[in-house]
C-alpha cells in the first residue's frame, strides 16, 4: 500500500515538473519564448456590427504549456473567443521543439446595442487559467508590429555614399537580440554587436541601408539576412547581405538587385525589386489595373538576422522562431 502511495505521489510530482503550469518557471520562461502576434492587418480594427481578428501563439520553450487562455474584456462589445479548429491539443500549447506549431485564437466582436460610432478600447489577457497570473506583458503595438515604410526621397541614390539627408527619415529597425542561457532557461539579451537597418520604398523597389556598425574582422564571416514574405503563411524569401564581399543575393532571384558598400566598409546601400517578392512590375500590370488608382495597401512580412563571428542575433523572435512569419513585422509600403 505504501509503495502505491509513493508511486502515485512521484507520478503527480513528475507531471508538475513536465507541464509546470502551476509553478512560476513557465511564466518566467514565457517572457522571451512565447511568441504572440495580434493579426490586425493594417493596425486598425474597424467594424460596423461585427468584426474580428486573430491572436497567434508560438511556443518555443523546452516544454508544452499545459493551459493557455485568452480573455478579451470590453463593456461595449459581445466577445467570442475560439481556439483555431486545427488546435487539437487546446488548451495545451505544444512547443515547436517537439513538433508543435503556430496556433491561434479567433476573436469575434459584436457591437452591443447602444454602442455608438467612435473609438473603443478592448483589453487582451493571456493567462494559464488563473487570470491573476498572466503569461507575459503584452505590448499590443509590438504584438501587431505594424510599421510604415516611407517613400524614398528623390535625393537617395544607391552609390555607397550614406548621408543623413538620404536616410534619416527611413524606417529604422534595430535592437537585435542574442538568445542566451540564464541558469536553466534561454532568454533574449541585447546583442553585443548591434545592427541597424533602414528602409524606404517606391512603386517598384524596397531600399535598405544595412549598417553593421563595425568592420568585419579579417577571415570572419559577417552576414545579415532579410526574410520577406508576401503572405503570413507563405514561405519567406531570404535576402543575404555579405559585408566582406559587398554582395547581396536573394533566394528567389538576384535579378535587379543593386548594392554598394560605403568607404568605411561598415554600411551597404541596397535596392531590392519588389517583383522578387511577388509584386508585379508596372509594365506587367494590365491596362485596367493601371487606370485604377491603387489605394490598396502593399504589405510585406519582414524579419532580420545577422551572423557575426559565429554569433547569430535576431531582430524579432529567437533561434526557434525567427524564420516563422508569425514572428515577423508587418511592413506597409508607402503610397504615392
Amino acid at each position: 500500500m505504501r509503495r502505491i502511495f509513493i508511486i502515485v505521489g512521484l507520478f503527480f510530482l513528475a507531471s508538475m515538473v513536465v507541464y509546470g503550469h502551476l509553478c512560476n518557471d513557465v511564466f518566467e520562461q514565457a517572457k522571451d519564448n512565447l511568441i504572440v502576434k495580434v493579426d490586425v492587418r493594417d493596425g486598425q480594427l474597424r467594424i460596423s456590427d461585427k468584426g474580428g481578428f486573430r491572436v497567434y501563439l508560438l511556443n518555443t520553450m523546452d516544454r508544452p504549456i499545459a493551459k493557455i487562455h485568452l480573455e478579451v474584456e470590453t463593456p461595449d462589445f459581445d466577445v467570442q473567443v475560439k481556439p483555431s479548429p486545427g488546435w487539437q491539443s487546446y488548451p495545451q500549447l505544444q512547443t515547436v521543439n517537439s513538433g508543435g506549431k503556430k496556433e491561434y485564437f479567433e476573436v469575434e466582436l459584436t457591437r452591443k446595442k447602444g454602442t455608438k460610432e467612435g473609438k473603443y478600447k478592448i483589453t487582451l489577457l493571456l493567462h494559464g487559467g488563473d487570470r491573476r497570473r498572466v503569461f507575459k506583458t503584452m505590448d499590443v503595438s509590438d504584438a501587431m508590429a505594424v510599421m510604415e515604410v516611407p517613400k524614398k526621397p528623390t535625393v537617395l541614390v544607391v552609390d555607397g555614399k550614406v548621408g543623413g539627408a538620404e536616410w534619416q527619415k527611413a524606417l529604422l529597425c534595430t535592437s537585435f537580440y542574442e538568445y542566451k542561457k540564464v541558469k536553466r532557461y534561454m532568454e533574449n539579451f541585447p546583442a553585443a554587436q548591434q545592427s541597424r537597418f533602414r528602409f524606404y520604398c517606391d512603386e517598384e523597389n524596397l531600399y535598405c541601408l544595412a549598417d553593421f556598425e563595425k568592420k568585419s574582422q579579417e577571415g570572419k564571416e559577417d552576414v545579415a539576412k532579410i526574410y520577406i514574405a508576401k503572405e503570413q503563411d507563405s514561405t519567406p524569401e531570404t535576402v543575404t547581405i555579405n559585408l566582406q564581399k559587398g554582395e547581396v543575393t536573394c533566394s528567389a532571384s538576384s535579378e535587379g538587385i543593386e548594392a554598394k558598400k560605403d568607404e568605411d566598409g561598415t554600411k551597404m546601400e541596397i535596392k531590392l525589386p519588389l517583383a522578387l517578392f511577388g509584386f508585379k512590375k508596372e509594365e506587367e500590370k494590365k491596362e485596367e489595373e493601371k487606370k485604377e488608382k491603387e489605394e490598396k495597401k502593399r504589405i510585406l512580412f519582414v524579419n532580420l538576422s545577422r551572423e557575426h563571428n559565429g554569433v547569430v542575433t535576431y531582430w524579432r523572435g529567437n533561434a526557434s522562431s525567427f524564420k516563422n512569419p508569425v514572428t515577423y513585422a508587418t511592413f506597409i509600403l508607402g503610397k504615392e
Binding site: 495580434v38 480594427l45 474597424r46 466582436l109 487582451l124 505590448d139 499590443v140
Partner: peptide
C-alpha cells in the same frame, strides 16, 4: 500586465474597404 487594442465603430465600415 494586459494589453489594449483600439476598435473603431463605423456604421459605414463595410463600405470602407471598397472606397478604392
Amino acid at each position: 500586465s494586459s494589453a489594449t487594442l483600439e476598435v473603431i465603430v463605423d456604421d459605414s465600415a463595410n463600405l470602407y474597404y471598397l472606397w478604392y
